[in-house]
Design a binder for these strands. Structure first.
Length: 520
DNA sequence: CTAGAATTAG
């Protein structure tokens, strides 16, 4: 009895030190405990594994797992959930899969947390199919998805372009009387805002308030960002003042959003004031704040200050990320110092192997604008990674040189690759043809664009239809009130796929179960 | 395990 109590005390001690990121202290306490005859158990080691995952790395966490095995303690689901969450946090998909497999091999059956984490990981990596398969697994393993499962699903659907499916899932959850959390509404509002569907977002905001919740700082920041994105600057500022008066500016989020919006409008003084107000209110800057400041210094042309900021960041223990480098490289290019930008690009590509497409895009644009058109074209052709900005920048630059034929070729190849191009780039080429007297060329290009888009849309659309259908069927098994209300078309599809029918039935049963439980 | 901020264009 005594030893159980002591181990419990030990665990409380360990978990406190782990939360404070004092892993050295935690380790010391374990050694002291062993010396005094208090042996650590699974709980002790699990706290350590989680802390190592969060603050050090997966490898270090695995070292703890090996240590516990040596000590004769078998890792359990919670150990593996921590490892899984750690890998997911770092977006290491293959590692997550390995961990999951290892877990299965050891005969540890995953619980809801394991599945939720895995699902989140797949969504984060832009693999909604895999994520959906995980959701299927939850049901096939006779587990009931909880609120977090649905929140993760909603968030993942929104982030992967399935806003409609997310909305449908939301409606069905609501219709079945599931109690929604504030976070659920926030997820949806953010997803809808980012998809540019302001009307729907406003509607959900209203439903949030109708269900008795009060919008929190996150809701406000989401709406704030949305205002600036849709160029409702004044409205955004008003919301910011409201946030201030309600005490929702206790962290850096709102300040960085507003400062970023000011900077984009060229109102550098106001942006600076905003950041200064933030620092004055005692918020300690994080990496995003530093990047926002970096952007301001670059836009103002204060490169000395920018480099000094790099030193400050290093002193404070912050490592530069892709944003930092992209901002600096873009700033240097826009200031006409392409050589320095190239030097910095070389520096970051020599130290890390991570690709930084925004930085590359800025540099490419800078090189072209500095008069090295051929070199830029060579870089463009050599690069494997291209996005809509890469193409748009090239098209714009070609148009400036009045090379409309090459520009239109590039534009069409961009669309054929299934990528969008900025509307401005499209307009530039068409206007270019028209203004230089090639009215027919302009018309031809327009119809070609329409054609390519149509073909693209056709293939994409079928894909989307099918996808959305499966999502509706499984991820939102509550689309219909019951199997008896399924539209005939869907019913036929169920008949073809007995396995999916089974999943649907299981999902429906589990929903009923949840409903019954919540009524009790 | 789930929600908000920072970069490229216009």
């Amino acid at each position: 009895m005594c030893s159980i109590l002591s181990t419990r005390l030990l665990n409380i001690c360990i978990s406190s030190f782990c939360k404070l990121q004092r892993l050295d202290k935690a380790e010391a306490v374990i050694i002291d405990g062993i010396r005094l005859g208090v042996l650590p158990n699974v709980v002790t080691y699990n706290a350590l594994v989680d802390a190592y995952c969060r603050f050090v790395g997966i490898e270090a966490a695995y070292a703890v797992v090996r240590r516990m095995q040596v000590a004769g303690i078998t890792p359990n689901v919670i150990t593996y959930n921590s490892l899984l969450a750690g890998a997911s946090r770092q977006c290491q998909l293959s590692l997550s899969l390995d961990i999951f497999e290892e877990m299965l091999n050891l005969g540890i059956s995953p619980d809801l947390w394991s599945y939720n984490t895995l699902m989140h990981c797949f969504f984060k990596l832009g693999k909604p199919d895999e994520a959906y398969r995980v959701f299927q697994d939850i049901i096939l393993n006779n587990l009931s998805p909880d609120r977090t499962s649905f929140n993760t699903l909603l968030n993942g659907l929104c982030r992967n372009g399935y806003t409609d499916n997310a909305l449908m899932l939301y409606r069905n959850l609501k219709r079945h009387g599931c109690e929604l959390e504030l976070i659920t509404y926030n997820i949806l509002i953010d997803g809808l805002c980012k998809a540019g569907r302001l009307k729907a977002a406003r509607w959900i905001l209203k439903e949030l308030e109708n269900s008795g919740y009060i919008p929190n700082a996150i809701t406000y920041t989401t709406v704030l960002k949305c205002c600036f994105k849709s160029r409702k600057f004044e409205e955004g500022l008003e919301i910011f003042w409201e946030m201030k008066s309600k005490g929702f500016t206790y962290d850096a989020f709102a300040y960085c959003t507003v400062a970023g919006a000011f900077a984009k409008r060229g109102m550098l003084k106001e942006a600076n004031d905003c950041m200064e107000a933030m620092l004055k209110s005692g918020i300690s800057p994080d990496i995003v704040c530093y990047n926002t400041l970096m952007n301001l210094y670059c836009k103002e042309g204060k490169f000395e200050a920018a480099y000094k900021l790099l030193d400050t960041m290093a002193d404070e223990g912050f490592e530069c990320d892709n944003y930092t480098h992209a901002i600096l490289i873009d700033g240097l290019c826009k200031a006409g110092n392409v050589e320095e930008a190239q030097r910095h690009m070389k520096l970051i590509s020599s130290t890390g192997s991570i690709t930084n497409l925004p930085a590359f895009n800025s540099l490419l644009d800078g090189v072209y604008k500095a008069g090295h058109a051929e070199f830029a074209m060579k870089l463009f052709k050599l690069s494997k990674m291209k996005d809509e900005f890469t193409y748009s920048s090239m098209v714009h630059n070609l148009c400036k040189e009045r090379k409309f034929r090459s520009a239109s070729k590039l534009l069409l190849s961009c669309l054929k690759n299934g990528m969008n191009i900025l509307k401005s780039a499209e307009r530039a080429v068409i206007r270019g043809f028209r203004d230089s007297g090639f009215r027919r060329g302009a018309r031809e290009l327009q119809s070609k664009i329409r054609m390519v888009k149509f073909l693209q849309y056709e293939t994409v659309d079928h894909e989307m239809l099918r996808e959305s259908f499966w999502f509706r069927q499984i991820a939102t098994p509550f689309l219909c009130h019951g199997p008896w209300n399924i539209p005939l078309v869907m019913y036929n599809a169920f008949m073809y796929r007995s396995e999916r029918t089974k999943v649907f039935a299981a999902a429906y049963c589990c929903l009923l179960r949840n409903k019954l439980q919540s009524h009790r």
